[in-house]
Amino acid sequence: MAPTGSRRPGHSRRAQYGTFLNYSLAVAGAAAGGALLLVVASDATAFSGLRGAATDLAAPAGEVGAGARAESQGLLLTLGAYFTKGSRVAQLEREVAQARVRLVEAEALHEENRELRALLKLSQSDPKPIASARLIGSSASSTRRYATLGVGSLQGVAPGMPVVSPLGLVGRVLEVGRSSARVLLITDSQSIIPVRRASDGTVALAVGHPDGTVQLKLQSLGVNPLRAGDAFVTSGSGGLFRPGIPFAVVARPTRDGAIARPLSDPAATDFVIVEPQWDEAGLDSTLPAPAGGQ
């Protein structure tokens, strides 16, 4: 039968009321969505418990996929490497020779650093990792950049903790479920991280871009000293991230800073490490206990 173009189902009052109720519910649903958006806009942590529980439920499926992802990436890399083997081996050998020299220098600096710290009576220890886990998912279809982590409050993870991979900073924990956590990646537009240039300590703020890069905004005005290839590490100010976590490399300088590419590609990392917040770790180990407490 040809559709009539009318939503009126017939003479039955009951059916008419049913149709009316359906449309009322639909409009009410849209209004409820708008109201929820307003609530979330005023308090970003609202409903984080609900999201945490939902992610906990779906986390086991994500774990399976995460293993497959790591394996398939490895396979593609191996296949690709065959085509450029010769030139890459030569280049890598050159780099290894240079790196050996650098390593010796670094060891000397490390030793010197330890002695200086001992003089200042600062503790040397890096913070002990809370947990290590796989990234099991990410908000790949949203312009916000979140990832899901396979550990949660049961393993001692708490909001604000930095998440690092062997290559560098990945992000920080935003919301925690019982066995999963939501990580704000460094490329999210709400992520602002204090960084400094590794070579001379030029300070900048790194703001994420939705296209997978970060924008470095220099703290001091003047001639832009940044060049492509400059490496940046976290500066440790603000007390969330410990100083010296590798962060990003400048891709191209802009008028008041630079666009930089993060060092740790979350897609290529297999396991990441959750570290305690730096200020807590620092307070525990460097300051003497308050006198006359307890």
């Binding site: 779906a58 986390a59 499926a61 994500g62 996929g65 995460a66 497959a68 992802r69 398939s72 990234l135 099991i136 998912g137 990410s138 908000s139 790949a140 279809s141 949203s142 312009t143 950049r145 990832a147 899901t148 990646l185 490329t187 939705p210 296209d211 997978g212 993060p262 590609d265 979350p266 897609a267 990392t269």
Partner: peptide, 15 residues
């Protein structure tokens, strides 16, 4: 549930 798929994206690419 596609955000739980084994794709960790640094840019919005997944539909």
């Amino acid at each position: 549930l596609s955000p739980m798929w084994p794709v960790i994206a640094s840019a919005p690419i997944l539909p």
